[in-house]
Design a protein around this nucleic acid. Sequence first.
DNA 1: GCCGACAACGTACGCTGTACGGAGATGATT
DNA 2: AATCATCTCCGTACAGCGTACGTTGTCGGC
Lengths: 251, 251
Amino acid sequence: MATESSGGGDPARTMALLWRPPGGPGPRPGPRAGLDVDRIVTAAIELADREGLGAVTMRRLATELGVGAMTLYTHVPGKGELVDLMYDAVLGEVYPTPPAGDWRARLTTVARENWDLFVRHPWAANVGTGRPVLGPNLMRKYDLELAAVDGLGLSEVDMELVIVLVGAFVRGSVAGLHDQAAAERTSGLTDEQWWAVTEPHIEKVFDPERFPIAARVGPVSGPELGAGDQARSFEFGLARVLDGIAVMIAR
Amino acid sequence: MATESSGGGDPARTMALLWRPPGGPGPRPGPRAGLDVDRIVTAAIELADREGLGAVTMRRLATELGVGAMTLYTHVPGKGELVDLMYDAVLGEVYPTPPAGDWRARLTTVARENWDLFVRHPWAANVGTGRPVLGPNLMRKYDLELAAVDGLGLSEVDMELVIVLVGAFVRGSVAGLHDQAAAERTSGLTDEQWWAVTEPHIEKVFDPERFPIAARVGPVSGPELGAGDQARSFEFGLARVLDGIAVMIAR
DNA sequence: GCCGACAACGTACGCTGTACGGAGATGATT
DNA sequence: AATCATCTCCGTACAGCGTACGTTGTCGGC
């Protein structure tokens, strides 16, 4: 879905930041920097995890870091680039060890690690990847995921398509989870409270004769899959997706 | 995903708007309304289709309708509710006739109609469904989709899970498509232009020895699946997903 | 003919990202 | 030791956002 995204800034500057060497720069004239890119990115990720990407404003972030708003622009070209840096940074959390086992175990790891990543960092699911942020951690992730489907007799194109499929499924699944959390934060109502308020209004308009199947399934699946059981939908869907991939591999 | 979402406004007012009777209200004192909810929602959808949900600001929309910004608030409680109305309105475009054929044909229709819907209305994929907009068109859509998996011997919960799976897959797939379009609009660069600018920077940092599989697959899949071939990824993934569901149904 | 309900909308407030320019600190050079 | 070039930090300002509030003028029903 891609709502917030990379900033049309100078690609050279963005790439230089993404691939900046781990050691800081050598001695240079001017006052000692009290701030650096890493501290800014770390603080921004924490803030986004806590309150969503919408809470990450330059002023707010600067305040949390104890500096003036414009100071951030000394270290980062703009907000778009900052989000890019945040995104690549969290991608580095994934696959502390490469996915192992048979292909099904490996792909299960790929799916679950992506799911967990987006659970830890909900905002990351909303960062557009249309123009991928070609940072070091994305490259590593891409390489490891392709490795998970290597050696199965698939063509290069099919390998890519399988990884894209798993990614799309995870991204779509996690969307439901985040929608709920976002709605709860925005409205200040829990799912139960919201339902209690909304339910009477539905009864007034819902016609079981017009929507017979919904009338039959809703009351059963609602309570059993209600709020928060997105994890179950995810595991169910993952099993089907892997079964489908198995059919192709066996063929 | 879920970036823009329903507005914590009074649920009673929102539901009243969603289920408003097709005929306008009876004669009432006061000047004739030059504007009504339908015209606002239609104009907002057109604007969002053309330039994205981000372009739908109250001022901009009002200008297109030839009224002052605050006039919109006479008819609609706020922007969140407007988005809700837009969302339910476009859901009404789907399934002019109910999905027919065997279950696989029916589910294919479900997936393709959702895909087409989000292609026509990219912004709709970003509307949070955590607190579903319980309008008439959503109810109809939900009912028809469940009907597509009815009579297969699945439990009510499994029926719901299958529909959620297909929905998640479509939503995740379409995200990639929109990311690209959004990036193109934001940056003003086509994919080719962007790649031409970015590629030299990659060559400087990309180490084929660190990322051997990416180095092998990227150059092959890149050109063949490049830009715009999200449709192919979708069809590929859909075939796998349906195969996986078939395994469960046969069992 | 009047009254009360209603549509329309100008103004204002606090929020956003960030362009611009100035102040002060410091390593390197002379 | 003095100077210079460069760097960090940041105050101010601007356009644009959603929308609360209050005013104005129009019309249907009595």
